[in-house]
Amino acid sequence: MIDRPVVVGVDSSESAGHAVRWAAVDAALHGAELHLVFAVPPFVETPLDDSPVRLWHDEYRQTAEQALADAARAAAEFAAPHGDLEIRTFLVDAPPIPTLTSLAATARYVVVGSRGLGAYHRSLLGSVSTALTRHALGPVVVVPSVPVPDTTLPVVVGVDGSPYSTRAIEVAFDEASRRGAGLVAVHVWDRLGQSGSGSQERAEQVLADSLAHSRAEFPGVSVRSVVTEDRPVRTLLAESEAAQLVVVGSHGVGGFPGMTLGSTGEALLPVVACPIAIVRLRN
């Protein structure tokens, strides 16, 4: 198996600080490297550039270097109770969105705060987190601006029987196992059968079948099943209020080729009160 690092997008925002703390704990629990990445848009010198522009860029790089050093210290502190952690810092002369999108292809996760320095004060999601959840080449975790949740709280996973859901289940069981936490598996259905169920009995069977493999692989994880006739977002949001992590597939049974993010993930991202992992299929 490829040894995948946990990658964090760093800036000087409070939101990024929360992302660093969550990622440090997760990397320590997985025995993975933590890569802290501060991407600074490159300065392109032309005959029209004047010295104030260069000065601003140089000062911004110095701010980035300090932010990375501060992030590394915070990561080491938060990871210490959970295991050893190797931390590497990267100051990259490139725009943040394409940089992090590409790194997601080989990372365990790319972790970002819900809002960075460039987000409007009233914005619920920043441009970087929005772009990554839609276009990253691997799993993305978005961490809201709240203290890192207690690792004894349950992990919640959305289940709909799709291949993306299967991968989300695998990730959720792994996270719950490493954290010594329980798992809440949520499957909702409707009478028209649009969720792939159509009745309570059928929905319970879909959930049981979906969980069977991971239950056998992680027998120590306690599972609570939630099967209800409702909207997926409403049920997942309710369960997330007492959770440390929500895991959903990037697409569900209603997805289609070329779709970048399903409706459930899209709706949860701005409002969920704990970190949320958007899981994609990849080689």
Rank of each mutant, 00 (worst) to 15 (best):
T99D: 13
G196C: 02
A176R: 14
S51I: 07
T99S: 14
T260W: 10
A71G: 09
L29Y: 03
G180N: 08
S195P: 01
P219H: 07
A185Y: 10
T63Q: 15
I278R: 08
T235Y: 07
S145M: 03
T152S: 07
T235M: 13
A242C: 04
H135L: 12
V111Q: 02
P47M: 02
L124T: 04
V40K: 05
G126F: 03
P52L: 06
R224H: 14
L91A: 10
D230R: 09
F90E: 14
L68Q: 07
R234K: 08
V156H: 08
R282H: 14
V223L: 03
F90I: 01
A19P: 14
G116F: 01
A242T: 15
H57M: 06
E204G: 14
R280L: 01
L132D: 04
A76D: 14
V233I: 13
A104V: 11
A131L: 06
F256A: 05
W189Y: 04
S12A: 12
H213W: 01
A28W: 08
T235H: 07
E77A: 07
A79D: 03
Q194E: 13
H187A: 03
F256T: 06
P139F: 00
W22Y: 14
P42K: 00
V25N: 06
L103F: 11
G17A: 09
L91W: 08
R108K: 10
L124V: 05
A277H: 09
T152M: 02
G254L: 11
S225T: 13
H30V: 04
S250R: 09
E175N: 04
G258V: 12
S263K: 07
P154T: 11
W22D: 06
A67F: 01
R215F: 01
A94Y: 01
G193H: 08
D174T: 12
A181H: 02
A24H: 12
P149N: 13
G193T: 04
